[in-house]
Amino acid sequence: MASIVSYLKSSILSKVVMAATGVVLVAFLSGHMLGNTQMYLGQDKMNHYAETLQSLGVALWLIRGFIFLSVVLHIVTSINLKIINMRARPVAYVQKNWVKATIFSRTMLWTGVMIGLFVTYHIMHFTLGTTNPGSFHLTDAAGRHDVYTVVLLGYQNVAISAVYIAAMILLGFHLAHAISSAFQTLGVNHPKYTGIIETGSALVSLVIVCGFISVPLGVLLGFIKPVAVLAAGGM
């Protein structure tokens, strides 16, 4: 164990762990976001997708374990780095101005903390159903877990949607710096490609955030409709 966590003593290895786990999490987020957009395809497709994931069994748990490990490493390393970095400047500037650093890059830890809190809530909401035991165990006509309706009911609550949207905007702030930053940390910085990497990273963050936000927005604006309405033949 000691040798595994010894990387924490090295600034660059810690950064590499941040970047590598970050890459895993961005990949996960991309997949998650694409999964969420199944909501647009209706109850059947969405519930089928959810059931397929569940049927992976051991594989699903392996994936979950891998993601969970990444999250833990990402958090533990970031806290350790924060401690190192705070120690590195015991006396603060009386006045400090920034020339180039963006608000996104300077607030990574705080957006990270908020996202962490949100994820906890999110798991309690949609994975465990702790916050909504009454509606969590619905099933559809085919007897499958009616994920579609559970999500829909959640997002019809304006307050819950607002929390999700706000969290996704914070995620956007985090990713705005994180993705291109990971390239730099992993040693990819080249005059020919840095511009492309930066634009591409911004684009990927934007797509991920918009994709996520579109679902609660879609519900609130009525693009994604309850099953009853669909059955009644409306639209």
Binding site: I84, A101, T185
Partner: peptide, 21 residues
């Protein structure tokens, strides 16, 4: 890099403020 860490400098978080100044 080992010496740099030992001297008590912090770690880079890619703000690029260094390059700007």
């Amino acid at each position: 890099v080992a010496k740099m860490d030992e001297e008590g400098f912090g770690a880079c978080t890619n703000l690029y403020e260094c390059e700007a100044v």
